[in-house]
Design a binder for these strands. Structure first.
Length: 437
RNA sequence: UCCGCAGUAGCUCAAUGGCAGAGCAUCCGGCUGUUAACCGGAGGGUUGUAAGUUCGAGUCUUACCUGCGGAGCCA
């Protein structure tokens, strides 16, 4: 008797099969039992008729609690009454472990309770669907970059100093005599590998010790950062468009079932094809100020600042597609950003604001090439020169225009799924006040 | 760090300052097609912690703890 997975059942209609999994839920009706089996690929309803099975088997199945581990043998039959279209006429059951008192019941639960039981919550349909979408987002990211000539060059997680010097870092004791920090970006190292390989990317966990408590924040998240030698701001914007569009396409193609479970409006994802609107910062400020005059925004936005969450939401609400805002004031961007040749106070940076109010999903731009400029910037930002000496070498030996961006996997996944909070898009979220499980 | 909201049965939530309640889950019983099944019964409580006001506090006051939402900051 072949062992099959639930997502292959349609290929085995009429056959006797073996399924190995866990009891998802069970309904009973007199001499009938409807155990629902979950095996990691899906859920299938099984049917047990009392008179068709031995008495002891009937009794043992009847008493099984939610999430009991079981192996079921039976015939696959197409049936309209069954959720999923197929059901199993059970002829044999092996109880691997009978379970009593599984904490997560089919009814409603609060966030705190579910997060405390995250290790079990992952088994539920919705969480399963979200993490399958994440899996596809990650594969789409890798496939896109690999097929586009990028080389994976991962950057260190333990680093000697801040990459950008601004945000808060997690500090680690490094054998007593030195301090190390968990990486908040692979950016600077990417510039080194880009000079070696041309087009590179790093993809790994990133750590930000910000005391942020919003639906868009995690203290540990995954970020993919492509970097290209001999590239400009325009190249970054072109790449961003194709990148997001290819991810959305893959999710639509491979995760239709999951998007249905999540009740995602897929029309919104179908819109994610180039070109995306491009808006200079100056024009964005005008839009925000006009919005304030019309009473659509509480506070008047002044030129020179970085956008707050309400500003981002307002701007992106004016477009159906993601909005690329570029040419920010240099003062609000990182020290390594290149300046506009026309206006020295503007940085060649771009933020991609996701549609539907999902906020900044990509941030990037063109990097400064001049040694003298960067030496000055390090001083202005009060950064330790010694720690950046290797980085300055990149400007001494074959410095060329280069550019890249970073995209947060969890923000992207939350957007694709159409869910409220990034905490559900990573198996074990790390947040302010949440380190367990 | 700041602002707001919340904490009562395993879970989700009720309860004018006056007897601690319901649904689900669990256990027992019924039902041959259930779809979050349904019907009947049973068990289940230091009302987040500490102090205070009061004849009397789940309810009012103060502090603390925990969580949620938001701001700043960011991907």
């Amino acid at each position: 008797m072949p062992q099959v997975y639930i997502n292959q059942l349609s290929q085995h209609a009429g056959e006797e099969v073996t399924l190995k999994g866990w009891l998802y839920n069970m309904r009973a009706s007199g001499k009938l039992l409807f155990p629902q089996l979950r095996d990691g690929t899906g859920v299938v309803q099984c049917v047990v008729f009392k008179k068709n099975v031995p008495e002891e088997m009937w009794e043992s199945v009847k008493s099984l609690g939610q999430e009991s581990a079981i192996v079921i043998r039976g015939a696959v039959r197409a049936d309209e009454r069954a959720p999923g279209g197929y059901e199993i006429d059970v002829s044999g059951v092996e109880v691997v472990q009978a379970v009593e008192g599984y904490p997560i019941t089919p009814k409603e639960h609060g966030t705190e309770f579910l997060m405390d039981h995250r290790h079990l919550w992952l088994r539920s349909r919705r969480q399963h669907a979200i993490l399958k979408v994440r899996h596809t987002v990650v594969r789409a990211v890798r496939d896109f970059l690999d097929n586009d000539g990028f080389t994976l060059c991962d950057t260190p997680i333990l680093t000697p100093a801040a990459c950008e010097g601004t945000t808060t870092l997690f500090e680690v004791d490094y054998f007593g005599d030195e301090k190390a920090y968990l990486s908040q970006s692979g950016q600077l190292y990417n510039e080194a590998t880009a000079a070696a390989f041309g087009k590179v990317y790093c993809f790994g966990p990133t750590f930000r010790a910000e005391r942020s408590k919003t639906r868009r924040h995690l203290t540990e998240f995954w970020m993919v950062e492509p970097e290209m030698a001999y590239a400009t701001l325009d190249d970054v914007m072109n790449l961003s468009e194709r990148f997001i569009s290819s991810i959305a396409g893959r999710v639509l193609e491979e995760r239709g079932e999951e998007l249905k479970v999540l009740e995602r409006d897929t029309a919104k994802l179908e819109l994610l094809v180039p070109p995306f609107p491009r808006l200079p910062y100056d024009d964005a400020v005008k839009m925000l100020q006009e919005g304030h005059e019309r009473g659509e925004l509480e506070t008047r936005f002044e030129w020179g600042g970085d956008f707050g969450a309400p500003d981002e939401t307002y701007l992106s609400s004016k477009y159906e597609r993601p909005l690329m805002v570029h040419h920010y004031p240099a003062a609000v961007k990182a020290f390594y950003m290149a300046r506009s040749p026309e206006r020295d106070d503007l940085a060649l940076g771009v933020d991609v604001l996701a549609s539907e109010g999902y906020g900044e999903v990509i941030g990037g731009g063109e990097r400064a090439t001049s040694l003298a400029f960067l030496e000055e910037q390090l001083k202005l930002h009060d950064l330790p020169r010694e720690a950046f000496e290797w980085y300055l070498d990149l400007r001494r030996y074959g410095s060329v225009p280069h550019a890249g961006f970073g995209m947060g996997i969890e923000r992207c996944t939350a957007w694709m799924c159409g869910i409220e909070h990034v905490r559900e898009t990573i198996p074990f979220p790390r947040m302010l006040y949440r380190l367990r499980p």
